[in-house]
Write a protein that binds this DNA or RNA. Structure first.
Lengths: 209, 209
DNA sequence: GCTGAAATTATACACTTGAATAATTGCTGC
DNA sequence: GCAGCAATTATTCAAGTGTATAATTTCAGC
């Protein structure tokens, strides 16, 4: 008469979130192949069968996890904007600094990003999410660049600003990746200095370091 | 008396290479989880057991495949250098163009890169390979930048050049990623134009578009 | 306190995975 | 040609996978 495991009934919302978080943890730690139903359930403190109760299939769970991840990243980025100064140039500098320093720079986030990047070329839903996220971030950067150029009295036609936003976005992405994946390669604050100086040259602006 | 499958004895070298190529194809098409011994053997036109004959374990095969991939990328990049003009400024422009246009820009290569990126944070061997490859590429870019600046009569102290190489490398990486993963977002030649103009501003050089 | 519905666990199953071993075949050197 | 070695195939196995279903437990409403 080995007693059955005791449990508590969590609300649907909480359980779904717990399973999604467990999934993200598994992927971050061991890649997608480590996110088995058993590993996820174990990490969520739950039995594998429960996954079936909240998600029709494991694929559904993974898709939900991906959507949650992207939403969180977008929201975190938006929230950080509130703490930036109002002056357009200082605001841009703060935005750049945020993008290339912790907590945005983070090996775990990088691993999750790489995992989803891998799916984008062959999964239409993933591609749509990626495209929307990419364009949202780039558009935000583009507006900040336009405002900073305007505030500094520099010319800023839309075509050039667009091109600068694409390049600036790529620059931030590349620095974010290397800082996340090879943290020991760069000294404290080095990334920030590099990013600020690169943007200053790119935009021909004086950005405070 | 169902006949046994007929086969030919390939040289060790050729068979190992065929298995490695099959592995890379599998990963590119369906991610690491699609690279099962059976799928790899099928694509290589061989029986699963043969993998054991050439590689002690599947992990060994995957590691060899990764090493081969990185070596090829490095060699392809080096080979392309030979076709570039001798003039340092034009040479840099050509290098930049190569990095953001096909065949370097390629969804398959991007998928493989993302797959290995995912392993870097938790696999020391992968990290070493990544670090060496990254530094080799960056150093090459740094030398080309220094030469171009010198040819144009611009100042080029080592610290600044180093920072510019890091930023330039990140810029190329970011553009390469987006061009590979969202090819429809950018018009023919747009990436090249964006990259060249960004580098021209970054280095304060006149680069021919 | 009961009761009933829903959440959760337990168990089972069919299938895929990587690996190990035995049986056969192609090919090289004579 | 033929002998023998090594490359290759065929077969097997134990472990792990996702999923389906039945058995139980929790807990809200009365």
């Amino acid at each position: 008469m080995t007693a059955r495991r005791t449990f508590i009934r969590a609300g649907e919302e909480a359980r779904r979130l717990a399973l999604i978080d467990a999934t993200l943890d598994c992927i971050a730690e061991g890649g997608p192949q480590a996110a088995t139903v058993r590993a996820i359930a174990l990490k969520a403190g739950v039995t594998p069968g429960l996954i079936k109760h909240y998600f029709d299939t494991k694929e559904d769970l993974v898709a939900s996890a991906h959507e949650t991840l992207m939403t969180r990243m977008t929201e975190a980025s938006a929230a950080a904007l509130d703490d930036l100064p109002a002056d357009p140039v200082a605001r841009l500098a703060g935005f750049i600094t945020n993008a290339v320093t912790p907590p945005v720079v983070d090996p775990r986030a990088m691993a999750l990003w790489a995992a989803s990047m891998q799916l984008v070329p062959r999964d239409a839903a993933m591609r749509d999410v990626h495209e929307a996220t990419y364009l949202a971030f780039r558009d935000r950067l583009e507006r900040m660049i336009a405002n900073a150029l305007a505030a500094a009295g520099k010319p800023h036609d839309t075509a050039t600003t667009r091109a600068l936003a694409i390049a600036g976005n790529a620059l931030l992405d590349g620095l974010w990746i290397e800082a996340s994946v090879l943290p020991d390669q760069f000294a404290q604050g080095e990334m920030r200095s590099i990013a600020i100086r690169a943007f200053a040259r790119l935009l021909d602006l004086k950005l405070s370091e």
